[in-house]
């Protein structure tokens, strides 16, 4: 079932449709929020607030944008609220390199450090495209900038990442 139908069913209070949307978006929103906030706990908070806003606001979704851009737009708003310290109990983001014994963790740390070297708006484009699955047109809507700006940000981000990761 496509995302729009699921949102329509969520608007009617369908819990299964809501769980399906959660399954489709929660991890993607988490990665996006983590790239903005660089703090797992704050990123989890963004996911929670975004999903609650989706549940409450599904009836007001008019379908003028894609569901993906709507959800990532909510997440962006929530993340910036936290960055501005507007949320209840807000705290400073922590940048941590926690040891992680899981396979692939070493590469994950390398990639995270490389992403951290990018300007925030470029990092956001990379994460939304590669981890969020958004097109440049959708990213332009989420960031509120022209499509050309998104393409330019990605072009420069790719150059920098290729250099830092020695591709």
């Amino acid at each position: 079932m496509d995302d729009r139908k699921l949102v329509a069913e969520v608007a009617d209070g369908d819990a299964r449709a809501f769980r399906e949307l959660y399954n489709r978006y929660a991890d993607r929103v988490f990665r996006y929020a983590l790239s903005l906030l660089r703090d797992r706990h704050l990123a989890e908070e963004v996911v929670q607030e975004t999903m609650v806003a989706l549940w409450k606001g599904a009836g007001r979704f008019e379908g003028r944008s894609l569901v993906s851009t709507w959800i990532f737009g909510i997440a962006r708003h929530q993340a910036f609220r936290l960055l501005r310290g507007e949320a209840k109990g807000a705290r400073e983001p922590e940048v941590r390199d926690e040891p992680d014994p899981a396979p692939g963790a070493e590469l994950a740390v390398r990639v995270r450090r490389a992403l951290d070297k990018l300007p925030p708006e470029q990092r956001e484009v990379v994460v939304l495209a590669f981890y969020g699955g958004l097109s440049y047109a959708e990213i332009a809507q989420v960031q509120g900038v022209p499509e050309g700006t998104v393409k330019s940000r990605m072009f420069h981000a790719k150059k920098k990442l290729a250099e830092v990761l020695r591709l």
Partner: peptide, 15 residues
Amino acid sequence: KLAHVLRRARAPRLP
């Protein structure tokens, strides 16, 4: 190559 590295890097997941 970049896409491959980004995918191989264990993407963070929610608990």
